[in-house]
């Protein structure tokens, strides 16, 4: 089904603040099978020059998934037909334990590709003090029938 083109350029309100914990970072690192001590041991992270344990490069997806920008029924997205097409991250620095972050998302593109619909969301992840940590681009594809 064609997505509502009125959503192109739409910015969504910032998500509720998310506090990044050492426990969540360790859980994520365990889940991806990465034993790097900078994800679990504050002393190892500090020895590597970080103020506290840092998160793996794809961890910001955890925060940006908490965003419900796509749930608006006016958009017309059928979630059962959605596949993840592309994902990118541009980092100012790694996410780290103790960060309290919010996500601000904007729909930057909606277009048809054959029978499919492609939608790109840009999300800025900032601390509640306004420091930009990471900008993500999430491309989803709604498969056409």
């Amino acid at each position: 089904m064609a997505l509502n083109r009125d959503f192109i350029g739409r910015a969504f309100p910032p998500s509720a603040p998310y506090e990044v914990s050492r426990v969540k970072i360790r859980e994520f690192a365990d889940a991806i099978g990465d034993a790097n001590p900078v994800y679990r041991d504050p002393a190892a992270a500090q020895a590597a020059g970080h103020p506290d344990v840092v998160a793996p490069p794809t961890f910001p997806i955890v925060v940006s998934l908490a965003n419900d920008a796509l749930a608006d029924p006016e958009l017309g997205l059928n979630y059962a037909m959605v596949v993840h097409g592309e994902q990118s991250f541009a980092y100012e620095r790694p996410v780290r334990a103790g960060d309290v972050v919010t996500c601000t998302s904007t729909v930057t593109e909606i277009k048809a590709i054959g029978k499919n619909e492609k939608l790109v969301i840009e999300t800025e992840i900032r601390t509640v003090d306004g420091e930009l940590i990471c900008t993500t681009h999430n491309t989803i594809v709604e498969r056409g029938i």
Binding site: D34, A48, G49, P56, G85, E86, S88, F89, A90, Y91
Partner: peptide, 27 residues
């Protein structure tokens, strides 16, 4: 999950997660 394995490949090679400035993939 697959992208995370690529991230692990990169950070293990570079030696630190902070070395990765940008990372993107198409599935």
């Amino acid at each position: 999950f697959t992208m995370a394995q690529g991230g692990r490949f990169l950070t293990d090679w570079a030696g630190d997660p902070g070395a990765v400035v940008a990372y993107g993939v198409r599935f």
